[in-house]
Design a protein around this nucleic acid. Structure first.
Lengths: 204, 204
DNA sequence: TGTACATCAGTGAACGCGCGTTCACTGATGTAC
DNA sequence: TGTACATCAGTGAACGCGCGTTCACTGATGTAC
């Protein structure tokens, strides 16, 4: 069941503690401001001790990055594909915003730092772009095929996907930043807003 | 017409040059990374020379900040109040995104750093909140009064304003960050997307 | 117009700071017999 | 079970770096008579 030796378990625990503390520091001070020295102070290590577990500050950041990236994908994939196309899109959007609420700092930084490698929708159509965006695109495609969403010239699958994305992205961003201290529960508001957009996209 | 002495004009030019170069550096390196020393290097001054014009690095940042803030308000106020309520909302949203495109870095930082002083929609209703958000709120109010937008329990003026805001904010953010290198002209896509949301908000 | 002085715009060296990283080290833990 | 040795986890001092800011200074520009 657990085939690790005691010291391997200790190592793993320390490894994780470093990552957790780094995330904590990033939340408090921002991705650019936190320091290894402060992290070491918090876990009662000397700065040099961290190098037993990670090669560099960037190494910590990259590891954290990957962890969060896969968590994000989990959020999106947790939405059942069996839902009717409209509900599926709705829940996908809700999952997106939920992630923003749960990991605000990663959400902010993730999308401010990373740039798409594609340069146009045409490229995205050919190559395989950002997997999480494609989840959304496929959802929209399904809805179009089912005939519940209308397509126009110049406002096709990608444009519609972008619009839905923009709405949930904006909700996530606002809640993670400007409205972070708001004592309002946005869940139902977001649901109603998202529904409004989908209604506007409907085939009449 | 111009009642400044030559040295006053020189001073003003240098003052402005510092601000311009700071903005340039922020664009290139981010708000946290740029340094006074690099700025001085670019305009062929010694770092200490800058203190003739500004008290500190923060002083430069604050000045720049105010300049941009008033520019943002200009964008929103440039939309004619004489438009029919629906078009007014549409153009307001377009102006918002246009600002994000024109000053991406300020847009990003502006909304990541600043936090609302209000803590709920109730508070916002009573006190006088963020002036730029209020421009939007008044636009939505007008549309509701004119009967072109539907109100529901739990999805009233503020909730609707928030939703419209989220959509344009998301569009602005995506274009300023993740999609920054996209060679697509988003103007018409944004217009169609915004129109879709408004359509979904319509009284049926 | 020329001279003497005051102001101004800008310099260069120095300050203390916190940073990421390196490296020789040490005491504790684990392993072999 | 005890001993000798190897490995491991973590330390502490030091490195060079770039930073914002200060301060005594200087040469150029402006002012008064």
């Amino acid at each position: 069941m657990n085939d690790l030796t005691p010291q391997e378990r200790r190592q793993q625990r320390t490894h994780q503690m470093i990552l957790d503390t780094a995330l904590e520091l990033i939340k408090e001070q921002g991705i650019d401001k936190w320091s290894l020295r402060e992290l070491a102070r918090r876990i009662d290590y000397s700065p040099s001790g961290l190098y037993e577990y990670f090669d560099s500050k960037d190494d910590i950041l990259n590891t954290l990055w990957q962890d969060i990236g896969s968590k994000f994908r989990t959020y999106l994939q947790s939405v059942s594909l069996d839902l009717p196309p409209e509900d599926y899109l709705l829940e996908l959007g809700m999952a997106y915003v939920r992630f923003a609420r749960d990991y605000p700092n990663y959400f902010i930084v993730g999308f401010s730092m990373v740039r798409s490698e594609m340069l146009s929708f045409e490229e995205a159509r050919q190559q395989d772009p950002e997997p999480s965006f494609m989840i959304l695109v496929r959802g929209v495609e399904k809805a179009i095929e089912a005939g519940v969403i209308r397509v126009e010239a110049g406002f096709d699958v990608f444009e519609i996907s972008y619009t839905v994305w923009a709405l949930v992205h904006g909700m996530g961003m606002l809640q993670a930043t400007y409205l972070a201290d708001f004592t309002v529960d946005f869940k139902e508001i977001d649901r109603a807003g998202l529904r409004s957009l989908l209604r506007g996209l409907l085939a009449t």
